[in-house]
Design a protein around this nucleic acid. Structure first.
Lengths: 253, 253
DNA sequence: CGGCCTGTTGATTAGAATCAACCAAAGTGG
DNA sequence: CCACTTTGGTTGATTCTAATCAACAGGCCG
């Protein structure tokens, strides 16, 4: 658990063109010389600690962020002070779009782990995007992907069975890890059971039980936040075609 | 079947500059001469009938749409053929952003009523937006508002009590009608109970019961799809601070 | 060591899904 | 024009899932 990783200065210094996330992030599909324009406005921020906020609800839209590593959650606080989790953000995924509509943030973005982020001042991004059609295109695509993730989230929440939601959650997370080139069947959850519960609209006990149930069924192996997906196909099945299949029969024959 | 309403040619012909939704739609904040550039690429389509689709899942992103009147729903079809309602779209709200991420539509957009829509070819919109900073800005804002509505939807779905979800739904719809300058306390729901149920992640019977309950409590008056919000403040309270207040005591005192 | 946070597990209960009638309005066709 | 069907909505009875309340276990920290 030497959690605070050795600070890779080279990584911090080097720009988008050397970033491993290049093909997933704003620079995707942008020519090298154009990339430099983008690179000039991107600020590589110092490491963020766990629990630190990138912005708070109500803050004016100043910049959007992308994690190079680590993970974030965005939460909105209801009038009663309840925290509801709007989304989780893995490396390469844009953070801060919740302010696009009104010009100020609806959510807070909180680091779930130590992380390094790139900060892109929004005004400048807009200006450069207007000048570089391929950047504009990629910006819209990245925004669209974010919309897509929100819709996936909606798709999880309308499922009424807790087990389905949990399977869908794990499946989706696994896919996202695969996308960024990390192991898709073995990973450490960056978020707590409570975060997951507030993301899925369930009680945290229900999430816990859901995990144990999946473990009992041999689909996954869980130890605290360590997840090992033993039967990806089965998880996929549970996530999609529901549990209608084996309704009563627990012990398999 | 004079279903096709009297065709208002003047309305169809007149461009954005004469549109009553101008300040809510893409043209907002755009100077008259710039507006003409936008106007040139907007196609005013013939009236759409109820049940007609603007696009289907899988269709490549060709255009985005805005209703001038009427209402739409966007739905995604699960592998089991279940229809899940992603969103409802009132006049002035952009339809079709679900394709921004992958370049093809994830959803289908279906007319809930007869409607007139403007169609904006996406490629051309991107080109013009790159040339007109104020249009680019407004495009991003409108996209952001759409993201905001999705997040409101999420906020509804994580609420676990059916009554809260229903109150929140009515409250949000009311706000949106107010925004477009239509009566906010009296309106006709363009969607069926089943659509609402699939939007809220509830069974349709539960939605029906929820409406009846609100009526019994004197908060609203419902007759089929006609809604009259009698106590907006009370609805607002139910939507936000939940029903934790009067748990058992039905008859007050 | 003792406290604290995170997660698991158990018992009970509230609330919504489901199954099933039923009703009114709107078509449809003889 | 009236019987018949279809569609959308309401209401009732029953069942079952997940929330809630509660106790407890392991890891980590001061």
């Amino acid at each position: 658990m030497n959690g605070a990783p050795v600070l890779d200065l080279a990584t911090l210094r080097s720009g988008c063109s050397h970033c491993s996330l290049q093909q997933l992030c704003l620079p995707a599909g942008i020519s090298p010389d154009e990339l430099q324009r983008l690179d000039e406005i991107v600020r590589r921020r110092r490491p963020i600690e766990r629990g630190e906020r990138l912005y708070r609800a109500g803050d004016p839209l100043a910049a959007v962020f992308v994690a190079r590593d680590g993970a974030f959650k965005t939460v909105s606080i209801s009038e009663e002070g309840e925290e509801q989790v709007i989304g989780f953000h893995l490396p390469g995924e844009l953070i801060g779009l919740d302010a696009l509509g009104a010009g100020s943030h609806r959510c807070e973005a909180i680091a779930l782990t130590e992380a390094n982020v790139c900060e892109v001042p929004f005004e400048q991004l807009a200006v450069v995007a207007a000048q570089l059609p391929s950047l504009q295109q990629q910006l819209l695509r990245v925004i669209g992907q974010s919309v897509g993730r929100d819709q996936d989230h909606l798709g999880i929440l309308v499922r009424r069975q807790a087990g389905e939601r949990i399977a869908l959650f794990l499946h989706g997370l696994s896919e996202r890890y695969r996308n960024i080139g990390q192991p898709a069947t073995q990973f450490k959850l960056p978020m707590s059971r409570e975060d997951i519960a507030r993301y899925l609209g369930l009680a945290l006990e229900t999430v816990s039980r859901g995990f144990t149930r999946l473990q009992e069924d041999g689909v996954i192996d869980v130890v605290g936040r360590r997840i090992d997906i033993l039967k990806p196909a089965e998880l996929n099945r549970l996530a999609h075609s529901a549990e209608h299949d084996e309704p009563k029969r627990r012990g398999r024959a």
